[in-house]
Amino acid sequence: MKIAMANDHAGYALKEEIKGYLESQGHEVIDFGTHNEEACDLPDYIYPATMAVAEGKADRGIFVDGVGYGSAMIANKVYGIYAAVCQDPFCASLAREHSDTNVLCIGGKIIGSAIAMETVKTWMTTDPITDVEKYTRRVNKVKEISEKHLKKLSEI
């Protein structure tokens, strides 16, 4: 699977650790940076990584910033992106099972490496629930909101 990764200075170290894990599992990582811990502007890295997922150049995205919310706010402004902030494996499981998220956002200042790695492992290996009507109905309602309020990439 191709995974777009991006981070700001606060998420750099954890992103590097997650990247190593993903590559060791046979995934191709497309790293949009930043590539150091110097202060930077989060949108400069998250937006291009988000576009890679939206355009199908990556299957999923994993973004790491200070708390995760900045990345999610940016990513969720793009059509076809369903980003969730997950700070533990339980939330990661639900984000995939119940919401079919395609972008995971993690706060490098919020959780430690061990929990972050378990969160990524869970999110990467959990499939959405597609055989229970209430979950598919809810996911479809979110997609309907996107259809109503966000422009498709082909319309930009």
Rank of each mutant, 00 (worst) to 15 (best):
E133D: 14
R138W: 12
K151C: 02
Q25S: 09
I18D: 00
I81D: 07
D44T: 14
A58K: 04
W123C: 06
V29L: 04
A95R: 03
D88H: 09
A116D: 09
L104C: 02
R60V: 11
P43F: 01
S24N: 08
A75N: 03
A84Q: 05
A4W: 05
V85Q: 03
A39Q: 02
E147T: 09
I156V: 13
C91N: 15
V64A: 02
K15F: 08
V142F: 15
E155A: 09
W123K: 02
A13I: 12
G20K: 12
V120A: 04
D65R: 01
N36V: 04
D127T: 13
T136W: 07
K143I: 15
T50S: 04
Y21V: 09
E28W: 03
A4E: 05
P128A: 14
K15H: 12
K77F: 01
K15M: 10
G56P: 09
R96Y: 13
K141C: 10
Y135L: 07
Q87N: 15
N7M: 05
A39V: 05
A83Y: 10
S99L: 11
F63A: 00
V29Q: 00
V85R: 03
K152S: 09
Y79F: 13
C86P: 10
E144W: 06
I145H: 08
S113Y: 14
G20Q: 08
V139E: 05
D41E: 14
T130S: 06
N102K: 01
I106P: 00
D41P: 07
I111W: 09
A114W: 05
E147W: 06
D59W: 03
K143T: 14
L153Q: 09
A95Q: 12
Y79V: 02
D88A: 11
E17T: 12
G11M: 02
K15G: 11
K151S: 11
T50C: 02
N36Q: 07
A52W: 07
M73S: 13
N76I: 07
E118Q: 14
K121W: 01
V53M: 03
K121Y: 04
K148N: 11
H9V: 07
S146R: 11
D41C: 07
T119I: 06
K57S: 11
C40T: 12
S71M: 03
C40A: 14
T101S: 15
L94A: 13
E147Y: 09
W123N: 02
A6I: 08
L94P: 04
A52E: 10
A49V: 05
A72I: 11
V67D: 14
A83E: 10
T119V: 12
H98N: 15
I106S: 00
I111Y: 08
I106T: 00
I145G: 08
R137G: 04
A72Y: 08
Y82N: 15
Y12M: 10
A95C: 15
M1G: 12
A52I: 13
H35L: 09
A84H: 06
I110K: 10
A95I: 12
D31A: 05
A58D: 04
G70M: 05
A95M: 15
G61E: 06
P43Y: 01
N140Y: 12
C105Q: 00
N36W: 02
E16M: 11
K121D: 07
D127H: 14
E17N: 07
V29R: 00
A114V: 14
G107T: 01
G66Y: 01
W123E: 04
A92T: 13
G61P: 06
A52Y: 02
T101P: 11
K134T: 13
G80I: 06
